Simulated assay, not measured.
Amino acid sequence: MIYLILSILICILATVLWIMYKKNGNLQKLQQQILQEHEKQMNETAITYEEKEQLLLSNFDQIQYGAQKVHQKELEQYKNKSEIELNKLSTDYQKKLAQSEQNHLEKVNDLEEQIYGLKKQVRNTGEVATHQILREWKKSCIRRGVLKEEEFHIIPNIFIPNDSKKGERTNRQVDHLLLSRTGIYVLETKYWQGTVVHGLSKEDAGVFSFLLEGMKQKGNGQNDERTIVFVPKIIDDESGNIKKIIQIHSYGEPVSQAKSTAYVTKIYLADQTNMSNLYVTPVVYFGYPQKDEKMNGFLDFSNSDVQRLSTKQELESFLDRENQKEKRFTVVQLQQFKEIIENANYI
């Protein structure tokens, strides 16, 4: 009986174990299915998320690209507008500048015409004749190879600013300024008709000293020099008869004029160039009219150290001698002097 009961219990236990085994296997399958299903859902969710992410990124890129296009278009429009405004401003400025330059040029031309008119008024026949002699001498030297064009400058009829002791500015007229590598020369031209008696003092005049008494002259020394000119004239007297007379004229002292002009020129050039060792040589040229040579002459009693010349040949010989001296200035310096002197006429 006991064996039977044990057998029954064993059978029941085996059945229960088998049932539990079956259930456990089903549970594992179910768990496996649930895991697979969950994994499948997770994969689908991940794919959906990636797709949405890609879609969002794509939409963002499109929005950003669109914004860039709009910005670039606005930038180009602003750039084009700025270029148009800038071109307009530039055009207006160029017009105003051109008008300003035209107005300035007209004023300069007017000023040059005024200066030319003033120069023309003070220019005399003697200065023109002297200028022609100087030009011919320079051309001859260039042809002979003893002088180069840039080594000698002839500047006629100019005005040098001169500050007086009272602080007033005046202008000193220069008949001819010669700029050479051997020196700087002020040429004072006197084209007087008649017989010129230069450097006459009371001591030299002798019995004719009374002629000097009525002439106003600075200084009271016994040997103060005077220059007088005897000019022959033909007149009709009260009876209608033709008579020859001699008129006596005093036109000033050319040597002192030349010295003063040379000094003013030296001071001005020294101030403009900072060259303290400059020296300007004064020269007086009595170029009386050749056509009236019989009625003209030159007597020189002066003891002055200023060079005095009375004929074309003497002037040319003087220039030849000076041109053979030692060179003191360079071509560049001569050009600088020339520009300074020419600009001085517009101050």
Rank of each mutant, 00 (worst) to 15 (best):
F318Y: 15
Q132W: 07
K266I: 00
T195G: 00
T170P: 00
A205P: 04
K325L: 15
L13R: 09
V331T: 14
N43S: 07
L187F: 10
Q54D: 06
I8W: 15
D305P: 02
I242V: 14
Q307Y: 02
P254M: 06
Q28V: 10
I242K: 14
T261C: 04
K294L: 13
N171Q: 06
G240K: 03
N80S: 12
D92V: 03
N274E: 13
Y116K: 14
A205H: 04
I47E: 12
V128R: 07
V332E: 15
N323I: 08
Q336M: 08
V196I: 15
I245T: 14
D224S: 12
W192G: 01
V229R: 05
L269D: 07
H38F: 04
N345I: 09
E339H: 07
G214N: 12
E106D: 08
K138W: 01
S310Q: 06
L13Q: 08
G25F: 12
Y191N: 15
E76G: 01
V284Y: 09
D305E: 13
R308P: 00
V332N: 11
E85A: 10
M215F: 15
R123V: 09
N43D: 13
A258W: 04
E136Q: 12
W192I: 00
I84T: 10
K327C: 04
Y116R: 14
E44S: 11
L89K: 15
F60R: 01
T125S: 13
T265E: 04
S164Y: 05
L212M: 02
N343Y: 03
T189F: 01
G214A: 04
D271P: 00
E106G: 01
I142L: 05
R181S: 07
N303M: 07
I235Y: 11
G240W: 02
K327G: 00
A67I: 07
N303R: 14
E127H: 02
Q272H: 05
G240N: 06
T125D: 10
N303P: 04
K120A: 09
F298C: 04
